[in-house]
Simulated scan of single mutants.
Amino acid sequence: MEGNTLGTVNTIAAFFQGGGMFMWVILFIWAVGIAISLERFFKLSFKFDVDGASFMNELQRYVLANDIQGAIRVCSGSVAALPRVLKSGLKRATSTPEQIQNAIDATALEVIPKVELRLNYLQMIANISTLFGLLGTIQGLIESFSAVAAADPAQKAELLATGISKAMNTTFLGLLVAITIMMVHTFLSSKSEKIINEIDEFSVKLMDLLTTKKEKN
Rank of each mutant, 00 (worst) to 15 (best):
M1H: 15
E2W: 11
L6S: 04
G7T: 00
T8Y: 06
A13E: 08
A14C: 06
F16E: 04
M21R: 13
W24F: 08
I26M: 01
G33T: 10
A35H: 07
E39F: 00
R40Y: 02
R40K: 06
F41D: 02
S45W: 04
S45Q: 04
F48T: 06
F48E: 10
V50E: 14
D51K: 10
A53V: 05
A53N: 06
S54R: 06
S54N: 06
F55Y: 14
F55D: 08
Y62R: 00
V63H: 00
Q69G: 01
G70D: 00
A71C: 00
V74Q: 04
C75D: 01
G77V: 01
S78C: 11
A80E: 12
A80Q: 12
A81E: 13
R84S: 15
V85D: 14
L86N: 07
K91D: 13
R92E: 14
Q99H: 08
I100H: 04
I100G: 07
Q101K: 13
Q101C: 05
A103C: 05
A103F: 02
T107M: 13
E110H: 14
E116I: 01
L117Y: 11
L122D: 05
I125Q: 04
N127Q: 04
I128C: 01
I128V: 10
S129V: 01
L135V: 07
G136W: 05
G136H: 04
T137C: 09
I138Y: 00
Q139M: 09
Q139P: 00
G140F: 02
I142N: 00
I142K: 01
E143L: 05
S144C: 11
S144H: 05
A147F: 02
A147E: 00
A150G: 04
A151M: 04
A154M: 11
K156L: 07
L159T: 05
A161T: 14
I164C: 09
I164M: 14
S165W: 07
S165I: 05
A167R: 06
T170P: 02
T171V: 10
L175H: 09
L176R: 04
V177Y: 10
I179P: 09
I179A: 11
T180P: 13
T180E: 15
T180I: 15
M183Q: 15
M183S: 15
M183D: 15
T186P: 09
F187W: 14
S189T: 08
S192V: 03
S192W: 03
E193K: 13
I196Q: 08
I199W: 11
D200M: 10
D200T: 13
E201S: 10
F202P: 02
S203I: 11
L206T: 05
L209W: 00
K213D: 01
K216I: 10
N217P: 02
